[in-house]
Design a binder for these strands. Sequence first.
DNA 1: ACGTGCTCCTGTGTGC
DNA 2: TGCACACAGGAGCACG
Length: 262
Amino acid sequence: MPELPDVESYKRYMDATCLHQQIKTVHVRERRILKDVSPSRLRSTLGGRCFLSTVRWGKYLFVETDDRNWLMLHFGMTGFLKYFKNEEKSGPHARLIITFRNGYHLAYVCQRLLGKVRLVNSVDDFTGSNLGPDALAVNFRDFKKIIGKSRGGIKSTLMNQKYMAGIGNIYSDEILFQSAVHPKMQGCKLNDRQIKRIYHNMRKVLKRAIERRADLDKLPRSYLLPHRQRGNSCPRCSSALRGEKIGGRTAYFCPRCQNEKI
DNA sequence: ACGTGCTCCTGTGTGC
DNA sequence: TGCACACAGGAGCACG
């Protein structure tokens, strides 16, 4: 479930806790989270180094070491970071534990093991061939180009990380709800006004969610997300919300407010 | 170039 | 009560 706003709060959390401290040990508890790197290479790359900076691109977090290596963290749907002092509090799902010289630990926690940890040469090296522009960094001209040439449903397009990085199932529902656009509407059939609306709402929703630290319960009641459950009704018109499989995910939308012809 | 369906994975919730 | 199964969903893959 970690989408752009969640990962942005992980970045800020990491910036506030883990930078400029020497790494003492690296403990891989579950090697299935490692991608293209062995536990021993991860240990030797990170051991004795410090984290210098972090970069978020879409749902990915890149962490730079003081000798210019990059640790890449992806959180799947259940991943998050936890910085703590008492190692016994790491919990059963801590898959990777980095211990600093100051005695504190950073755990990469991932219950369902859908996340991935790897080493990359640089941010561009990875994003260049795998990810589109970050959803909060893309300008309107490029956004319009991406949406305008897409023949797929707009929800799938917004969620396609190669087109644009950062939006998943949850926030795409909110963006389309606020834009009053049906999730199956083809991108290339949207008019200028609709594309502008979606762009504006995408930025608004993501920024608001970041302010609330991606806590869905703290979003305004006028948003779809606090009501995004089977059997609930639209906060705007009180119609029953519809849950429908779109692109393998369950999309929630209001059939009345988002009723434009498909 | 699109949608579909499968895989990975585990904890929770539902139906028989 | 207990078992079987569906579901949650990010991403990568094969297929048509």
